[in-house]
Design a protein around this nucleic acid. Sequence first.
DNA 1: CGTCTATTTGAATGTACTCAAAAGCGGTGG
DNA 2: CCACCGCTTTTGAGTACATTCAAATAGACG
Lengths: 202, 202
Amino acid sequence: METAYFYTSMNNTSVIHTINRYITLEPAEADYLLSVFMPRALPQGELIEKTGDPTRYFIYVNSGCLMTYFTDQTGSDHVIQFATTGWWTGDLHSFTRQVPSIYSTRALAESHVMLLPKVSMDQVLEEIPKLERFFRITFQNSLVTHQHRIIQHYTATAEERYIMFREKYTSLEQYVPLKYIASYLGITPEFLSKIRRKLMEK
Amino acid sequence: METAYFYTSMNNTSVIHTINRYITLEPAEADYLLSVFMPRALPQGELIEKTGDPTRYFIYVNSGCLMTYFTDQTGSDHVIQFATTGWWTGDLHSFTRQVPSIYSTRALAESHVMLLPKVSMDQVLEEIPKLERFFRITFQNSLVTHQHRIIQHYTATAEERYIMFREKYTSLEQYVPLKYIASYLGITPEFLSKIRRKLMEK
DNA sequence: CGTCTATTTGAATGTACTCAAAAGCGGTGG
DNA sequence: CCACCGCTTTTGAGTACATTCAAATAGACG
């Protein structure tokens, strides 16, 4: 494909734009950063991090869609995060402490990602201290989102949560099988199906 | 009270010890930091931040116990966090953007806190950039905790969540009325009561 | 001692789950 | 091009977990 090269080269700098929304990187710093990220194309369905192994990468999504999920004792999956263009994902606890991960991460569609290995993360934070600020703000925002999600679970029924999900993540319903959306919402696929029918009938 | 002075002066440095667990403050930096924090004693029941008002402070708890909670349309409260010695609390979203808060924060017991006003927060992050690292790590840890809590909601029944809560926050059950523990667990006080009876009978 | 709030109890109800089976859908091979 | 396979989604019946509402009991505080 002719467009592939353009596409990829454009997207590799996307992470720099994302970072520059909160801090200002010098060109040399941006180049250095790009040199430590590992760009990678993931085919649909690829498992990039696996439960039980220490998390190798902090992952930035250039394009496509990934999900990070937890598998319980009964073998069922529970999605904790979808990540599309401009999002970071991974098991932070496993990544920072290098202990076995409780999450897996998988590409739901063909995706382009930038991988930041643990040693590189430590290194870039040493060499470009203002990145601490970027990640501080990023984690702070994510924390707010997580708190909202906990509150939604308290205060809203599954139907209400589904409606809000659709409004917030409009594009996701195309990529993502319904069973994973159910999982993200904390309900069974059967029940989501019943909710959808009920909403259709209106 | 004779003990008050000793008590307060000892505890005011607690925040410095907490920060020094992740970074190393110079004595001058520690002094400067302490000069911008506002120490304050809160009587039991005091409401320090209120829904609807922009959050004024990022709060560090020296001693005692606070809770941050959300009040829904029907008027019932939902606890999103308890904070005891060594914890930070507040509505991060409201604090950083200075928009009306959706949370309130209240002292559940007589407490000593260190308040960091928004302008001071911005200022100390400018003047002591390595604090960015401290907050980055703090928010990162908090994020991991929040993710675990979401997963627990997915995978565990109310009874299991209550048992885990008791194990994790052993001391809290003394301070905190059961109805707030129920709220934190995302269940009604009536149902918590039934769970407790069932556990007693074993 | 009385008042106010927190906790407990019970009955009826609702939300969401489990299990089993059918229907839909996309890809693959004959 | 059709038949088959595997996986996702839908449907339905029965069930379990948790809620609501109302009322009784227990505890804290002035």
